[in-house]
């Protein structure tokens, strides 16, 4: 496609495991096409070369967990025309948001030999709590085909095809038999955002909810059904407290079962 200039792409890391950045490298064949269409201006996971901003597209991985990062994300936002958060950490606070349910000082004392060296915020929060985000791509990690789709949509000036309906729709499209109905396996699929192409049910596992809440999640109805399948309150808390524990719908549902006497 004819363009005035190649868009400059930057990839930023906050509190995260680097798995989403690795999904970019995992694009393999498509990665050459990506490199052909954009200038990779900043991507420490892949290259030491650094080009100065501003950047046309910034992909942001990770959550905000320190004062320093809370300031740094504002600098990145200022330098970025189009900012895309990638993955569960950046979009909901990630697995590290499990600490949001506890007293962080106690956790620091329990985990680190010299707690005095640790300087951290009380909560792990998503990028959108701090700056305006143009597009959010879900997943732990993100799906590489969706990542290429978002870049391709940006380059071609169209809307990305990343539906926010349930994982169930993807199961049915690929012809996977429902593991919850046919085997009684608890599954997060009905309340979870599509995007992984229903990976786990295709391998006979219940969905773990890596992509966070779907557009209109009815978590209460799903929990009620799980109890009929034999799940107890601690199981239900654990099911909702994984990679998207601090996403609103999952957080609220886990809190209902964390203190069962509060159940209405």
């Amino acid at each position: 496609m004819q363009r005035d200039h190649k868009p400059k792409l930057a990839v930023w890391k906050f509190a995260s495991c680097d798995g989403c950045q690795l999904s970019i490298l995992d694009c393999e064949d498509e990665l050459l096409a990506v490199a052909g269409e954009v200038d990779i201006a900043y991507f420490p996971e892949a290259t030491r070369a650094v080009a100065r901003g501003p950047y046309d597209v910034s992909l942001v991985e990770g959550s905000i967990t320190t004062e320093h990062d809370a300031e740094r994300i504002h600098q990145i936002r200022k330098q970025s025309k189009f900012l895309v958060t990638i993955g569960a950490c950046a979009t909901s606070g990630g697995i590290q948001a499990l600490r949001n349910f506890r007293d962080v000082d106690q956790l620091v004392k329990a985990v680190y030999a010299t707690p005095g060296y640790i300087d951290t915020l009380d909560k792990s929060t998503p990028i959108a709590d701090h700056v305006f985000v143009d597009f959010q791509l879900r997943g732990c990690p993100v799906n590489k085909y969706q990542l290429v789709e978002v870049l391709s949509a940006y380059l071609n000036g169209r809307k990305p095809n990343t539906p926010s309906y349930s994982v169930c729709v993807e199961c049915k499209q690929r012809g996977t038999t429902c593991v919850m109905v046919a085997q009684g396996t608890p599954c997060m699929g009905p309340v979870t955002h599509a995007g992984c192409n229903a990976l786990c049910p295709a391998y006979n596992r219940g969905c773990f909810g890596c992509f966070g809440p779907m557009e209109t999640p009815n978590t209460a109805a799903l929990s009620a059904w799980w109890q009929k399948l034999g799940m107890n309150a601690p199981d239900i808390v654990r099911a909702f407290r994984t990679f998207n524990a601090y996403a609103d719908a999952f957080r609220k549902e886990s809190e209902v079962y964390e203190h069962p006497h509060h159940q209405g």
Binding site: Y165, C168, V169, K172, Q173, P190, V191, A220, A221, L222
Partner: peptide, 13 residues
């Protein structure tokens, strides 16, 4: 509506 998951399974099957 209190029980419906709006997951879409009914329409797909």
């Amino acid at each position: 509506a209190a029980r419906c998951l709006t997951c879409g399974n009914c329409t797909q099957v």
